[in-house]
């Protein structure tokens, strides 16, 4: 079931990615002004945090498969830390924009930037909740070689969030 969700999400975000690229082609000045207000270093830092969480999630699933239940729980906690780190950094970016009087409906850039990064942010929130629930359960040792479908499915969801950012980061933050 998680794979159907993944495909639906990829298609929805794919439309937004292409819309952003086409709108930038059509309105280069508007997008140049909008992207000039973005901090590339913050975007790169968030990429590293997402990758770290993905790596920890893979390690967690591998640990449960080898019956290393305590290690698996610790890896999940590290994945949760990566997700929360992303939310803090991204939340700081959003707060800065709101403080500077950012209006999400000013032009094509602000609408597409808000939709893309806002929806992605919400997916990271969901990912963080999933990691927190999995970690809570893993503390009591419920996941092991015969029972690791839940952490594996949670990891796939997170890798999708990571995969989406691998396109979003260069599209919104790097190419201008």
């Amino acid at each position: 079931m998680v794979w159907l969700l993944v495909l639906a999400e990829l298609l929805a975000f794919g439309l937004l990615f292409v819309s952003f690229a086409m709108a930038r082609w059509r309105e280069p000045v508007v997008f140049a002004q909008g992207q000039a207000g973005l901090d590339l270093s913050t975007g790169a830092l968030n990429t590293v945090l997402l990758v770290a969480a993905s790596w920890a999630a893979v390690r967690a699933v591998g640990a449960f498969q080898r019956d290393h239940r305590v290690a698996g729980a610790r890896w999940l906690l590290l994945a949760l830390g990566g997700a929360l780190g992303f939310l803090v950094v991204k939340g700081h970016e959003f707060a800065g924009k709101l403080g500077a009087g950012f209006d999400w409906a000013t032009d094509s850039f602000t609408v597409l930037y808000t939709l893309l990064t806002g929806f992605h942010f919400l997916h990271v929130v969901v990912g963080a909740v999933i990691f927190a629930l999995l970690w809570w359960n893993a503390r009591s040792g419920v996941y092991g070689p015969a029972n690791h479908v839940a952490p594996a499915s949670g990891a796939v969801f997170w890798h999708m969030v990571d995969l989406l950012w691998m396109v979003l980061f260069p599209l919104v933050y790097v190419i201008r």
């Binding site: 794979w3 993944v6 495909l7 990829l10 298609l11 794919g14 990615f17 292409v18 690229a21 086409m22 930038r24 082609w25 059509r26 280069p28 995969l163 396109v167 599209l171 190419i175």
Partner: peptide, 25 residues
């Protein structure tokens, strides 16, 4: 499943590349 995800990635990257390299109107 592998072709669906990799195909999605290839199509999206190709369209973004096209829109980024086309001469501006």
């Amino acid at each position: 499943w592998r072709r669906a995800v990799l195909g999605w990635l290839a199509v999206v990257i190709a369209l973004v590349l096209l829109a980024s390299l086309l001469p501006r109107p």
